[in-house]
Design a protein around this nucleic acid. Structure first.
Length: 573
DNA sequence: TCGGTCACGTA
DNA sequence: CGTACGTGACCGAG
């Protein structure tokens, strides 16, 4: 057992399923101690040690914590080497081999795929660390599970990697207006780690669906559940026929955009493409266009969120499950199975069983508030002290609120044309620091210079240099990387704030009959009991205050959340 | 059987 | 010529 591991101290853990648990920790002298405990039930042992309150260190939550979560263990604190490698080194993968290499300044190893040949593995099995410094592919593929000594060596290497990462994040600049005891990038590493664990929990727990409500909605939109392919085809034809009836001439394949364009020409509508927003203006005067747009909506539900989706992704326990990512792209969480793009029409079906409720909370105007905090713009921060920050922005710009909103969003997205273009001049004058911050990011993107987000996530733009050198600084690609970078420093920081908030909420809910069941960029859904709902609302709101107090300390920015207790996701705020 | 394009849902 | 992501249908090249 890990003697001397106090609460919050790193404890590397490697689970050997059915056989034991390997641990590594630092003793009082700073040396690494390692141990393998043989047990048929390693998860139960983890649950025991959890009472000591260690900071579990694992290569990845998906690899190690999934088994714990499945067994009902909800660890309080962790350091996810894969998640921190994404943050610190800007990796787009989180396997042990890549994290180790990045921590040691080595080139990214090839993805572990396919069978290794004997030639590939020559001499690798004996040494965990190869002559070139990379981890042995044999070990990465599971050789560490071979015997107790190997497992504990693997845990020791894990702890070493964590130590390198911790040194790395602590060396990054703390960009807050007021620094705290721990540097912001270190705190970000902790919340990114917790987000990776949360992703595993979300995957396990799923989102509660009321099947009766869902089936009624699907039936109304795309017809009853087809019992054969013939029935499915018939339903399709029936939906198509409604549109065909509105157009003269022979029926065409409505799923083929080129043919739809020809179809529209028959009623005198000439458009460069057939996207909904382009057709929208014609809908009022043309019943044919209105029918086509209605068809599109139903078709989306039929194909992506139809009966087959329900059957595939909703479990026998009426819970919708997808694969969760804790930080993709600029750092946002991602989810498959439609969890992040469920059409609003289907949200009434997200509904826990009787007696349980959803606490829904979303951050208000999070990106402009984050921009104010991360750019250190005093005037924008002053605006961000208001409940509705677009109102003071409108006053400052001498515009109306809609124009102010468009101008702020245009600045963050890199839009230059249209009605927002003019307002940007006023933005420059009124919020010079924020605008300079955004321009600097854009410039870095256009030139292929690496950037870090406020919390320390590396945005690897230098990998684009070859493309940029080829295309030139004024090329379309250069400008598109510029817009990407301009947006990524805001979107990425907002994602870090969101995850810090989510991690705090998760910690506050420990022990209660309440769990986070959905994260959607600026919105959290917590499933709990009707009896506990008001207490959960308090936890969600106090978590935002405590997170804000360190995340944007000294900036003057206020973070606001709209929180409500609802029976279904669709219910009014 | 792929990659590219179009389209569209969420934030 | 406003960002990100996930998903599905279709097309044309292989």
């Amino acid at each position: 057992m890990p003697e001397g591991v106090g609460a919050g101290e790193p404890l590397a853990v490697v689970v050997v399923p059915g056989r034991g648990l390997a641990l590594a920790w630092r003793d009082a002298d700073g040396g690494i101690r390692r141990e393998h405990v043989a047990t048929a039930d390693p998860v139960a042992l983890v649950a025991d040690i959890e009472t000591l309150g260690p900071r579990w260190v694992w290569w990845s939550a998906r690899g190690t914590a999934a088994a714990l979560v499945a067994a009902g263990v909800r660890p309080r604190a962790c350091w996810d080497v894969g998640a921190v490698a994404r943050l610190l080194h800007g990796l787009s993968r989180d396997d042990a081999g890549a994290a180790w290499a990045a921590a040691h300044g080595l080139a990214e190893p090839p993805l572990p795929e396919g069978e290794l040949t004997l030639l590939d593995l020559a001499g690798e099995a004996d040494d965990v660390v190869r002559a070139d410094g990379q981890l042995s592919r044999e070990w990465l593929r599971g050789a560490w599970a071979a015997d107790p000594d190997a497992a504990s060596r693997w845990a020791a290497l894990l702890l070493q990697t964590q130590a390198l990462q911790e040194t790395g994040v602590r060396a990054l600049p703390d960009r807050r207006a007021t620094a705290g005891t721990s540097p912001l990038p270190y705190l970000t590493a902790l919340s990114e780690s917790m987000a990776a664990l949360l992703a595993v929990e979300l995957e396990h727990d799923g989102l509660p669906i009321d099947r009766a409500v869902l089936e009624a909605l699907l039936t109304a939109t795309v017809g009853p559940r087809p019992r054969s392919e013939a029935e499915e085809a018939a339903a399709r034809r029936a939906r198509d026929a409604v549109v065909w009836a509105r157009f003269p001439g022979e029926p065409v394949d409505l799923r083929n955009p080129a043919l739809v364009r020809d179809l529209l020409a028959r009623v005198g509508i000439d458009v460069p493409d057939t996207r909904s927003w382009r057709l929208e203006p014609y809908a009022e005067s043309s019943p044919a266009v209105a029918a086509l747009l209605a068809w599109r909506k139903a078709e989306r539900i039929a194909t992506t969120y139809g009966w087959s989706w329900a059957e595939r992704d909703i479990g026998a326990d009426d819970r919708l499950r997808g694969v969760w990512g804790a930080s993709e792209g600029a750092g946002r969480m991602t989810a498959s199975a439609g969890l992040h793009n469920l059409p609003a029409e289907l949200r009434p079906a997200v509904r826990p069983r009787e007696g349980r409720v959803l606490v829904r909370a979303d951050l208000g105007q999070i990106e402009p508030r984050v921009l104010a905090a991360v750019s250190g713009d005093a005037a924008l921060a002053a605006a961000a002290r208001e409940d509705d920050m677009y109102a003071p922005v409108a006053r400052a710009l001498g515009s109306d609120r809609p124009t102010a909103k468009v101008a702020v969003l245009a600045a963050m997205y890199g839009q230059t044309s249209g009605p927002a273009g003019a307002a940007l001049k006023d933005m420059d004058r009124t919020y010079p620091s924020a605008m300079a911050f955004l321009r600097a990011a854009e410039e870095a993107g256009r030139r292929g210079v690496d950037l870090r987000t406020y919390g320390g996530r590396l945005l690897r733009l230098s990998t684009l240099r070859d493309v940029l050198a080829e295309a030139g600084p004024e090329s379309t690609v250069a400008h598109s990387y510029g817009r990407f970078a301009r947006n990524a420093v805001v979107q990425g920081a907002a994602a870090e704030l969101f995850k810090a908030w989510a991690a705090t909420v998760r910690a506050g809910l420990a022990g209660a009959d309440a769990r986070i069941v959905l994260c959607l960029h600026d919105e959290l859904l917590v499933e709990t009991t009707a009896a506990e709902a008001s207490r959960v609302v308090g936890i969600v709101e106090s978590s935002l205050r405590s997170t804000g107090s360190w995340w944007c300390a000294g900036s003057g920015v206020r973070l606001v959340a709209d929180t409500s207790v609802v029976r279904s996701w669709a219910d009014a705020k």
